[in-house]
Amino acid sequence: MIAVWGLTWKELIRKRVTLMTLIMTILFWIAYWFLAGAIAGGEVHVVTSLGLLENFTRSAMILTLGFFFGAFAVAFLAIFSSVAAITGEAETGVLQSVLARPIKRWKWFMGRWLGFVSYVAIYASLLYVSLHVICWIHTGVFFRLEALLPSLGLFLAVIPLLVSLTMVGSCYISPLGNGIWMTMLYGMGWLGSMIGRFMATGRLHINGMETLETLTGLIKLAMPADALQQRMLSELFSISELSGLYDLNSELSFFSVNGAASNSLLLYSAVYVAALLAAGLLIMRRKDF
C-alpha cells in the first residue's frame, strides 16, 4: 500500500500537477495580496465604531474571498488528480499488470486514495495558512487557535469526500466522463448551497419555496462540500458565538456565511465518506479488468 501511495505522489509531481498548481497559486497569491490590501485600506461600512470589529469585519471579508477561491482550487485538484484512478489505469493496461501481482486489490485502492487525499491535504493546509498570513499582514487580525484548528479540519474534510466520490465514479466511468460528472455534481452542490443562502437571508421570494428547499437539501446530501465550507467559515468567524451581538453576515452580503452544515450534516458527511470508501473497496474487489 505504501508503494502505491508513493507512486501516486510521484505521478502527481511528475505529471506537473504540482508545478501547475503552484504557478496558479502564486498568481492567486499576488492577486489576493492586492485585494487584501485594498479591502484592509478601504472604507468599510460597519454599524459599530469599534475599531476591533471593523478590523474583524475586514479580515472576514478578505478570508471569505480567499476561501471562495481556495475551495474551488482544492476541489478541482482533488477531483482532477483522482479522475482516472481506476478506468484510466485499466484502459492503458497498467492495472492489469499490477493486479496480477500478489497484492490485495483493496490495498491498491487504499494506496491511491491515501496518495490523493494526503497530497491535496498538504496543498490545502499550505493554502489555508497562506491565506491567513496574508490577511494578518494587512489587517493585523490573527484568529484564535481554537477557531483555526476546527476550521482547518473542516476545510480539509472536503478532500476525502471528493476523492472518494471521484474514485467510486472512476470504477465505472471513463476519465473524461468522470471529470465532467464530478465537476457538474460539485457545481450543483455549490449552486444548491448558494440558493439556500439566498433563501436564508430572505432575499429570494419565489413560488414553490418548499420544493426548492427540498431540492437544495437533496443536493446537499449528494454533495455536502459547500455546506462543509460554510461551516468552516462559521467556525473560523465564531458566528454562533457572535449571534445576537454582531451580525457579520449582513456585512459580508453576497458572501454571507449562511447554510453552514449542521452537526447532523457533519456526521452524515463522515458516514457518507466512509460508505463511499467501503463501496469503492468492494467494487474494486469484485470488478473484472
Binding site: K10, E11, R14, K15, T92, G93, V94, S97, A100, P102
Partner: peptide
C-alpha cells in the same frame, strides 16, 4: 497463485512519467 506467476498483458502502456 499470483505469487507463482508473471504476466505480460496484450495491450499495456506503462506510465510514461516513470
Amino acid at each position: 497463485a499470483r505469487r507463482r506467476l508473471g504476466y505480460l498483458p496484450e495491450l499495456f502502456r506503462y506510465p510514461d512519467w516513470l
